[in-house]
Nucleic acid binder design. Structure first.
Lengths: 238, 238
DNA sequence: CACACTCCTTGATCTATGTCATATTGGCAT
DNA sequence: ATGCCAATATGACATAGATCAAGGAGTGTG
């Protein structure tokens, strides 16, 4: 007998409670298990595109997904990042409208795809699920509003540092010397997109932050020399 | 017998269909009629504040309401405008969270206030109402996302012209000479807040737009000399 | 090993917008 | 009318970021 790859059920998934599926009963999770597809994607692949009628929901097991909006002039902006333990594409279930953003993998990712009919059936059977979707939507909206306010009131430095802090919250750890560090999960160019500036500007900003000894950055490794300092500068207007 | 002021019922209100109440039955509207309070507010008055536990829903009969967010540094931004035929304060009913924005009257306004227990009762009795709230929330979110993208990709000129076009859609008309005009419903300083720039910058921008003969602006009266030109410049990146 | 490619950096310069200080204008109260 | 106040405008200057052009640096491929 050859070894068989064990497929973890939704009930055992580490991300279960942070996703909407946390609201479901064991039997409902098993129903998902039967029809979901586990898929892996390399950086740069598209999950769905702006304008498409929604299909199912993607649940991120590992990796990082970016939601992108392209405007009339072809300007493309990364609006939001979604990491493990969260779903993508759920918005089309709230009002039935088509996707307004595109979703793409930013790093190699493993996702579970839950087909639309399954989601619809669960939504009908269990009102708690709809509440969770709504709560997710609400949280996302607040995040966007916060980003919007930041984009209007704060300069590049604050917005950049805020983003770094978000990364630190999600992916940060202590290195061998006990320093707080985080490895940036995306390219500098993508960071520029998220901050809403040009890559050159991020490059120069990083220089400046190193000179001011706020951060130490080498390739994708960010080391916090003084977390309070970062927090303070991230909040400051300039 | 003295003349008595006629109070219009919700069923006869011009804004009924654009508000969430459009989903309700006649008897439900009459229930609202019995408990709602008609209130008038002068410019600058506060309907509710950031952090407050939500009370009821305000339904705008006439006037203009601004939703404002104040960040940690005291930077205050007008996030959104709400005009007649729309409700304000509904978000606290979706997830039970406190208000995240403040609402203030920007012009003299007449509103109907529907107390929280009434709204809750209706939500329980009629699922269509909840759907309408959700749809409203969805639309607002999309608007915010659009504003966010604009703030990242477009300059002050485009954002200003976009705002003017929004005003034109809602309040525009033809003057005696057949010109397309709109009277700005808010102060220039508030326009600056909405665009996310300083009042001085708006002042100078208006000068420039007049010189370039894109618009004619005198006090609060905006006259479109060439609508296509405005549309084009509003979309353009710079 | 050389080539091509993508990502990032650097330098020089340009432009949009912010800042600050000082008018101007148009109500509105005395 | 007079004076006061809020809103807006103007001028001079400072700064943040964009733009354009060039140059590494790392990585995969023939």
């Amino acid at each position: 007998m050859t070894a068989e790859k064990t497929v973890t059920g939704c009930a055992e998934c580490a991300g279960l409670q942070t996703t909407e599926w946390g609201a479901l009963a064991k039997s409902e999770l098993e129903a998902i298990d039967k029809c979901r597809r586990v898929i892996t994607r390399e950086p740069g692949e598209i999950l769905f595109s702006q304008g498409e009628k929604g299909n199912g929901v993607y649940c991120i097991k590992s990796g990082l997904i970016g939601l992108r909006r392209v405007d009339i002039n072809g300007n493309s902006v990364l609006i939001r990042l979604v990491s493990a333990g969260f779903t993508v594409g759920y918005r089309t279930f709230l009002t039935g409208q088509a996707h307004i953003n595109s979703a793409e993998t930013l790093t190699s990712s493993t996702l579970c795809y839950v087909p639309r009919p399954m989601v619809e059936q669960l939504l009908k059977a269990n009102p708690l699920l709809g509440e969770r979707f709504l709560q997710h939507f609400y949280n996302d909206t607040i995040d966007t509003e916060n980003d919007y306010v930041r984009s209007l009131t704060m300069g590049m430095k604050s917005r950049f540092l805020h983003l770094i802090l978000v990364f630190y919250e999600r992916f940060g750890y202590q290195d061998e010397n006990g320093n707080a560090v985080v490895d940036l999960p995306v390219k500098k160019g993508e960071i520029a997109e998220l901050v809403g500036v040009r890559p050159e500007s991020i490059s120069r900003l990083i220089d400046q932050l190193q000179n001011d000894e706020v951060l130490r950055i080498k390739d994708r490794r960010v080391e916090f020399t003084d977390v309070d300092r970062v927090l303070q500068q991230a909040g400051a207007t300039v």
